[in-house]
Design a protein around this nucleic acid. Structure first.
Length: 256
DNA sequence: ATGGTAGATACTCTA
């Protein structure tokens, strides 16, 4: 069982790369973020033709998440329980092969202590509350997506320079750590030790060419699921293509 | 020093 997460930065622009990657990597589940696509125009037919179901939750221009899967997704939940129709579309959950999968696009936060930053911290608090209210760490639970937070120094190309900056500030790390304390294991760290690899490189200033990246895309799982993990890796091949997303897929393989 | 690029939208916002 192979599960992946990828911020595609527009599903319309990236659809050819998505199709090619699905064929090459053959994941059972792919969680995508930043679809930037309303539900009425989501390309479900194209995924169907590739042999995948899709559950999607999007809005115009910004945000948007989807779960693409070989099997039909069960118990699909879209957004937080207290969301209204104007709430940003950043969370979708489904059950697949007995695993509760929660796919999130955590807010970027813009600049420290901006309105968007406060919104980010509040949103992460709500995410922790969502797990407290709905699931148990003794179950098979998987949280993945673009967290927009590098959790530790090994997740940052130059932690000295990034200290106190957006994605690596103390309040953000504390907030994401609180979510982890619910009972999650960072699968990439568990399976790969202290190696320094990234999942996102800014489009600007030659960040990709210089490997000036961050590891902000994550797959976190409950202990029972962590015990079943065989391998977790970052697939950098899509980031090398022409017109890439600024993120690249993170993949986990489980023995079930 | 306040860039640099990309995507969606409509001449600007978000990342």
């Amino acid at each position: 069982m192979k599960i992946a997460t990828w911020n595609v930065n527009s599903i319309n622009v990236r659809m050819p790369q998505l199709a090619a990657w699905l064929k090459a990597a053959n994941p059972d589940v792919l969680c995508v973020q930043e679809t930037k696509c309303v539900d009425e125009s989501f390309p479900y037919q194209e995924f169907h033709d590739l042999g995948y179901y899709s559950a999607f939750f999007g809005q115009k221009s910004y945000n948007g998440v989807a779960i693409i899967s070989r099997h039909e997704p069960g118990d699909v939940v879209k957004g937080f329980p207290d969301d209204d129709e104007d709430s940003q579309k950043r969370l979708i959950a489904a059950t697949l092969d007995g695993i509760r999968i929660v796919n999130t696009y955590i807010p970027n936060g813009s600049e420290l202590w901006s309105d968007k930053f406060e919104f980010k911290l509040d949103w992460i608090q709500k995410l922790r509350h969502f797990f407290d209210e709905n699931y148990k760490p003794s179950e098979k639970v998987l949280l993945c997506g673009d967290f927009n937070v590098a959790a530790e120094p090994a997740d940052v190309w130059n932690p000295g320079a990034w200290e106190g900056k957006i994605h690596f500030s103390k309040p953000e790390r504390a907030a994401i750590h609180f979510v982890k304390q619910w009972g999650f294991v960072d699968l990439f760290r568990k399976m790969n030790g202290d190696i320094k690899e990234f999942s996102w490189w800014d489009y600007r200033a030659g960040a990709w060419q210089r490997n000036h990246g961050l590891r902000i895309d994550h797959i976190w799982v409950s202990e029972p699921l962590a015990d079943l993990c065989k391998k977790c890796w970052i697939d950098k091949t899509p980031r090398q293509l022409e017109k890439p997303s600024d993120h690249t897929p993170v993949v986990a393989e489980f023995g079930l």
